[in-house]
Amino acid sequence: MKRKLLLLFALTALGCATLSAQARKGLKINEVMVVNDSNAVDEYGRHAAWIELFNSNYAAMEISSVFLTNDTTCKTLYPVPLGDVKTKIPKRQHVVFWADNRPTDGTFHTTFTLDPSKPNTIAIYDADGKTLIDCVTVPVMKPGQSYARKVDGVGAKEGEAEEDYWSVRDGSESEGDYITPGSANKIKGTNPKIDEFKEKDENGFAMTITAMGIVFSALILLSICFYIISRFNASRSKRKKMEAQGIDHAQLHPDEQPEGDSGEEIAAIVMALHDHLDAHDRESSVLTINKVRKAYSPWSSHIYTLRQMPNRR
């Protein structure tokens, strides 16, 4: 019993740890500006290098106690402080950290700066100080340029080059070059899925064929599955029936094997038995008379529920 409890406890702990790691995995470095001379200003009105983080999960994420660093040999360079409500990032939202080495200025001011003369590797480590959540190497940039994911939170899959998912932005008006600290890297006026359907499937024909195909295949799968289960069940019940009658299943020709009983057959057999045994149900004609007993309750008491007449003297 003790062993089982211990095992259960260990499994629960492991599950919780995995869940937490999975949840934090959704935290992404989304955009970085190394030399900020004319872009966003912090709450003190100063220009400083900034790092934008994005919560790619569809649930809010608490990021206090994760570590932000620009030195992978020192993974715990800047711990995001506890106790600030702003460290809870809503689903699919962003926060900006200022890499200005002024941690006393607030939660979002790190203990390090970024070096404009060389590529900067920026990483986020989980609260244990070991588990890497996300990492990016920002190339050498000109003043006013940012290095950003093309689409929020989307990075390379295994075997793909991470650089293909990032772009250097100079803030020009052309599409895809906006610098967007604290907001989405790709500005979406409308839902791209809807636009695509509107453009490529104008009359809805492709959607109809695809969707009906999916509906049919789901129900055909279910139908086949239950056809197999019913066949298996029917043969099992036949075998059981023959075993009960002492018939050897293997010796019978397939045509001689009894068929499964339908509900109607069962009803007919029961009615025949009922008739044969003359087992009339007499209960319906028995009149049962029980003494009605009312338990006393103050709620039903006349003394309490009726208004008492005033005494006349």
């Binding site: 009906m212 049919f216 129900l219 055909i220 139908s223 086949i224 599955c225 056809y227």
Partner: peptide, 8 residues
């Protein structure tokens, strides 16, 4: 089970 197709 084949009646599922009617539903589909």
């Amino acid at each position: 089970p084949k009646l599922m197709l009617v539903g589909a």
